[in-house]
Nucleic acid binder design. Structure first.
Length: 897
RNA sequence: GGGCGGUUAGCUCAGAUGGUUAGAGCGUCUGCUUUACACGCAGAAGGCCGGGGGUUCGAGUCCCUCACCGCCCA
């Protein structure tokens, strides 16, 4: 139902249209991929947000970018799939639910594993859909019928299959090794899940007396004195002259009374502390390695609960580790063995999830052997090669190096977590024969001895293990003959934040190649972080978060999307401010009002048949704007192909606001008054194409206008699609280039600007009538034909057009817009002196400019070495400047005559 | 310790492959109820492109170096 043009609101009211439009898209089935043999399948799999999470600006950014790419490809006719999903997010979700339990005064152990899992599932039911709804508010055109959850049967099967395969190859293994342990979450963490934060601490200098000479000692420096309870050695650099006599001798570990050796190890930094390092193989990764090299025993003195164990002796057993730190220091002090304590600023590892200080300790865990990046057959090696040889492209390119560096230093991945929420490791232990095996399907008996006394492993897998399968597990792998898998794998693009390059992107590449023999995606597009207006990271604790839903209510979804993705380059962080959002909202409103004008202008017309293709417009202004439109179309497509979405949008903004609204529409008004039908047709044509170009970025306002507009114009012979989102994305097939129109319009616009400028300078009110005469100097036809445009836009009345060099009184002001000269007889407003001063200044500028170009062209090296077209351009410039100079000189001569 | 990014207008940022007198938004100043839009129109001011050196006919752009800010890895 079309409303009358005058009923269209003056300002774009986003809230009123968005839900209706989205519902309509969904009901029409546009989000599902549509087969097209001539298109190339395009697929983005959405980075699955945490199932209990809420949308934040990072999600809004990622969704805006993915939706834009998706809509672009869909409009190009590619079979397009944007597959949405959600992540069970093991440790994060468990942490959230455990906190809720704590508020209720209970905990997961009281509940028991089954009840706890049940409890988490309830959370998932309750909160799991909010983020989907929020994505819909953002206009995300993903195919909700394919929504996947990491704990769905398909992905579960993918996880188990992967595990079993890797287990059978011997690449997944169980081993006792030093790992990062979070005492609060009570689980092992991977190296990546530990964040290092600089903290103020102390450096304790402790004397370890020699076992055979109580008056001699080695002083060690440590930030964790309590760990000395587990020391089994002291290490110094083998070349350190201070300790030559100590290496190989025994020291007596204070408090504990254990005799431990002094060993020489090249890993020790001579400069640090005293150059002597106490070695605690059970609680430090570096010490663990030193211990291995020298066969030092391991003593575990800190338990999984973060308390000192019995192994440290009865005095400290059971004491919390930080209490023990103070107590040990105190006792050493009392023993006279604490030499000194210094303030010391150092990095402390903490749990990414709960910020608890992590404790390195020895534990039995499951690992994935990823091998070395140099081994072309290893998991890491293949993931390395895929990026190194360009099979996978990372945008922006600089992250390629970051990715490769990480793989160069990669270690085996600790994949087991002592959590209850997640993919339980599919390994069963037999109580009778002691064997164990991995299975895709739950077994009923031990495969070795047939005993039914089997029990599944308690640990679950690192969340990133299942996310690492996402590009193929969501498409049906490992099922044979999955259509989606063959159509959309490898995915086209993986769009995500650079902060999870290692966590996720690298794992997807490793596991994707491992499982399918193919790369998971062709391109990785990394976006930056959304910061607040002050450049601070947004966080709940800082209290500087902005809720995307609030912003989209306030400014409109299109404005939010535009603000998030314009004015930033790939991989760069962006600051979001009210100003940016306002500017985007203003742009949406500008488009809205331009459309309102066009719709009003075409009301009641029946001469618009050609609007859709507009192959060869005749009028200069039409040829100009259509030429600009084609150039824009090519540039936008090019930018999109290079993932330069910000640039594409900037170009659209400039074109719509400057070329179309400020110039074309204003000039068209003049012609419309004269009943020119070409202007009306061109207005519709340019507006409609601009809407299509803009649609991937601003889906709602463009759809609303597009429906309004197309319902009022005759349909082209081939018909019109029912929605802009399934219309063709404009492409330039044969350029309607118009270089003559471009340069002629340039003179016209410059002339108008020159008059406006002088008017402002001389403070002549806009309403005051201003006579003008233009000397055409060879451009008579152009000036005659654009006379009305110039007259109205420059507000000159009357406007006379003079032949070439027709002598003219120099009284007043003369503006040189080469080759034109605009005469404004402003006698009484401008006196002769002022005008000749102005002209002298003008002449000086021109002269300087001319000299610069002359010098350039006089330089033989420039002429011989620069590209010919550059030289030619300079020659033309010189010609024009010379002409301009002569004209100014003529006027000055007339003035003084 | 290694690596990466940043340093461009008052503020926030763009500036393929080196090529006019370096751009935008916001802000500032001056005008304007011009019948699409004051979420607007017209005009203006404002930049040794962080410092130094180099390559080149020509450098914001390439190379070296220094400084400061931020990030990643150890």
């Amino acid at each position: 139902m079309t409303q009358p043009a005058n009923a269209i609101p003056r300002a774009y009211e986003a809230g009123a249209v968005e839900r209706r439009i989205y519902q309509n898209w969904w009901d029409s089935g546009y989000f599902a991929p549509h087969a097209n043999p001539s298109g190339e399948p395009f697929c983005i799999v959405m980075p699955p947000p945490n199932v209990t999470g809420e949308l934040h600006l990072g999600h809004a950014l990622t969704a805006s970018l993915q939706d834009a790419l998706t809509r672009w490809h869909r409009m190009r006719g590619d079979p397009t799939l944007w597959l949405p999903g959600k992540d069970h997010a093991g440790i994060a979700t468990q942490w959230v639910v455990e906190r809720a339990l704590a508020d209720e005064g209970t905990n997961r152990h009281d509940l028991g594993r089954d009840a706890f899992e049940q409890r988490v599932w309830e959370w998932v039911e309750r909160y799991g859909n909010t983020i989907d709804e929020q994505h819909r508010r953002l206009g995300a055109s993903c195919d909700w019928s394919r929504l996947r959850f990491t704990l769905d049967p398909g992905p579960v099967r993918a996880v188990r299959t992967t595990f079993v395969n890797l287990f059978s190859k011997g690449l997944i293994y169980r081993h006792e090794r030093i790992i990062n342990w979070c005492p609060r979450c009570a689980t092992a963490l991977s190296d990546l899940e530990v964040d290092y934060e600089e903290r103020d601490g102390k450096l304790y200098y402790i004397r370890y007396p020699l076992a055979d000479r109580a008056d001699d000692y080695v002083t060690v420096a440590t930030t964790r004195p309590e760990s000395m309870l587990g020391d089994t050695g002291v290490a110094v650099h083998p070349d350190d002259e201070r300790y030559q006599d100590k290496i190989g001798r025994m020291t007596l570990l204070p408090i504990v009374g254990r005799e431990i050796p002094v060993v020489g190890d090249p890993a020790i930094e001579i400069e640090f502390g005293t150059g002597a390092l106490k070695v605690t193989p059970g609680h430090d990764v570096v010490d663990f390695e030193i211990g291995e090299r020298h066969g030092l025993p391991i003593v575990n003195i800190i338990g999984f609960d973060g308390c000192i164990t019995d192994a440290a002796g009865p005095k400290y057993a059971g004491m919390e580790r930080f209490a023990a730190r103070a107590a040990v220091a105190e006792e050493l002090e009392a023993l006279g063995l604490l030499e000194r304590v210094e303030d010391y600023h150092h990095a402390v590892g903490q749990c990414q999830r709960c910020s608890e200080v992590v404790e390195p300790l020895i534990s039995l865990q499951w690992f994935l052997n990823v091998g070395q990046h140099t081994d072309p057959n290893s998991i890491a090696g293949r993931a390395y090669a895929a990026v190194a040889n360009g099979t996978i492209e990372i945008v922006p390119e600089r992250f390629t190096r970051v990715y490769l560096n990480w793989l160069e230093n990669i270690r085996d991945w600790c994949i087991s977590r002592q959590l209850w929420w997640g993919h339980r490791i599919p390994v069963w232990y037999c109580a009778d024969c002691g064997g164990f095996a991995a299975h895709v399907e739950d077994p009923t008996a031990c495969e070795a001895c047939g005993s039914a006394a089997i029990q599944q492993e308690n640990d679950v897998l690192d969340t990133w293990f299942s996310s690492g399968l996402w590009p193929h597990s969501t498409l049906g792998w490992p099922e044979e003959g999955s259509d989606d898998l063959s159509e959309f794998y490898p995915n086209s693009v993986m769009e995500t934040g650079y902060d999870i390059l290692f966590f996720w992107v690298a794992r997807m590449i490793m596991l994707g190649i491992e499982n399918t023999g193919q790369i998971p995606f062709r391109s990785v597009y990394l976006h930056g972080m959304v910061l607040d207006a002050e450049g601070q990271k947004m966080s709940k604790t800082r209290g500087n978060t902005l809720d995307p839903l609030d912003l989209l209510e306030q400014y409109g979804t299109d404005a939010l999307r535009f603000a998030l993705t314009t004015g930033t380059a790939p991989g760069n962080n962006l600051r979001l401010s009210d100003e940016k959002l306002e500017s985007a909202r203003n742009f949406a409103n500008k488009i809205w009002n331009a459309a309102r004008f066009v719709i009003t202008a075409i009301e009641g017309r029946n001469d618009l048949d050609d609007w859709h293709d507009l192959i060869a417009p005749e009028h200069r202004e039409d040829r100009w704007i259509v030429g600009r439109l084609d150039a824009l179309t090519a540039a936008v497509n090019e930018s999109l192909a290079e993932f330069e979405l910000g640039e594409a949008q900037q170009k659209l903004y400039d074109f719509v606001w400057n070329d179309f609204c400020d110039w074309y529409i204003e000039m068209a008004k003049v012609r419309l008054r004269d009943g020119d039908s070409g202007a009306a047709v061109t207005l519709v044509h340019v507006l409609e194409r601009s809407l299509r170009l803009l649609h991937p970025f601003m889906p709602f306002v463009t759809e609303e206008i597009w429906q309004n507009l197309t319902s009022r114009v005759p349909a082209p012979a081939e018909g019109l699609p029912p929605s802009i989102m399934v219309a063709d994305y404009p492409q330039v097939r044969s350029v309607r280039s118009a270089p003559d129109a471009e340069s002629e319009m340039d003179v016209v616009m410059q002339t108008i600007r020159a008059v406006r400028n002088i008017r402002a300078q001389l403070r002549i009110p806009a309403a005051q009538r201003l006579e003008a005469a233009i000397e055409t100097n060879g451009l008579r036809t152009v000036v005659e034909e654009e006379r009305e445009a110039i007259r109205v836009l420059a507000r000159v009345e009357p406007l006379r057009v003079l032949d070439g060099d027709a002598a003219q009184s120099a009284a007043g002001v003369s503006l040189v817009v080469n080759p034109l000269v605009v005469r404004l007889p402003l006698a009484g407003i401008v006196d002769l002196d002022a005008e000749s001063q102005r002209l002298d200044q003008e002449l000086e500028n021109t002269r300087r400019n001319q000299e610069r170009v002359e010098q350039l062209l006089a330089n033989a090296k420039f002429v011989s070495k620069a590209r010919p077209e550059v030289v030619e351009k300079e020659r033309e410039r010189l010609h024009s400047l010379t002409e301009q100079r002569e004209r100014i000189e003529d006027i000055i001569a007339q003035l003084s005559a």
